[in-house]
Computed example of a mutant assay.
Amino acid sequence: MITVLIFLMIFVGVTVAWYQIYQMHFNINTPNGAKLSGNKSRQLDTLTAAQETSLDEAGASRFEEAATRIFGRGFNIAALRIAFSQEGREAYGLPLLRCQRKLTRPSSHQAGEGGVRVRHLRLFKTRLPSINVRNAFILAVIANCGLVQLLAAMSVYTIHYSVDVSALAWVNQPVMILSAIWGVVVLNILIFKLDTYLHDLYQARQLNQLTPLFN
């Protein structure tokens, strides 16, 4: 009974690994406000609506007031107008809302494209990433999915045969294969989170190249 349960969980792990490729593709190709928390989603709606009605002086004032309330006085209103325009909302607005608290104003000698700093931890700061590593993460998820398929195939193979190589002796135990498969699944989840985090920062850099993020 335990063996049947182990093989069932291996099958579930394989299914989840395939789903993760779809999930990665979906996350990349369908950016939307549903990926924001409730409060951030409301902020997005507020800024988008204010930007759409900012053609006259009163509307521009409302957008500036909303942007200052959400982002603070340090952010450049011109950059925020680009971010929450109809064209820039998905490319810049969504990422900026997610990572705004990580961004710090550059000091006077750091001003310019590379001046904005990212506060990852309390005492750990870096510049905004200059390389988009999303393609590498996609390849990593696909490779991990392939590894899961291989491990699952080995679980079937070792039902009737054993692997005699000492370094691979662990694959003769289905529970070890199960642990490895779910370890890879968890690794993919971490890759998803890191991909979103770094891509948001990369998009913030792209916006900073168009117009400085801070005054």
Rank of each mutant, 00 (worst) to 15 (best):
K35Y: 13
G112P: 02
Q23L: 14
L207A: 09
F26G: 03
N135D: 10
Q203I: 09
I6E: 13
S108D: 13
N27E: 13
L8P: 05
Y19Q: 09
G59E: 04
N135R: 10
V171A: 14
R98V: 05
L213Q: 12
T104P: 00
S155W: 10
I159N: 06
P174T: 13
A67L: 08
L128W: 12
L94P: 08
F124H: 09
I77W: 00
T48G: 02
R73I: 05
L187K: 06
Q206S: 09
A17I: 02
F63V: 08
Q206D: 05
A78Y: 01
L213N: 11
P174W: 04
A180T: 13
L97P: 04
K193E: 08
T53H: 14
T126E: 12
F71E: 01
Y157G: 00
S155V: 12
L178E: 01
A60Q: 14
N172P: 03
I77S: 00
N132I: 04
L190T: 06
H120I: 02
I21H: 00
R134L: 14
V16E: 01
D195L: 05
N29I: 05
L150C: 15
G115W: 02
I189Q: 10
H160A: 03
L44T: 10
F214M: 07
I181D: 05
L123I: 08
I189E: 10
A136F: 07
Y202G: 10
F63T: 11
H109R: 11
Y161P: 00
D45P: 00
I21A: 02
L213A: 08
W18P: 01
F137K: 02
E90W: 00
N208H: 15
C145S: 07
H120E: 05
S85A: 02
V156Q: 15
I181L: 08
T104A: 02
T30Y: 02
F63Y: 14
T211A: 04
S41W: 11
E87N: 05
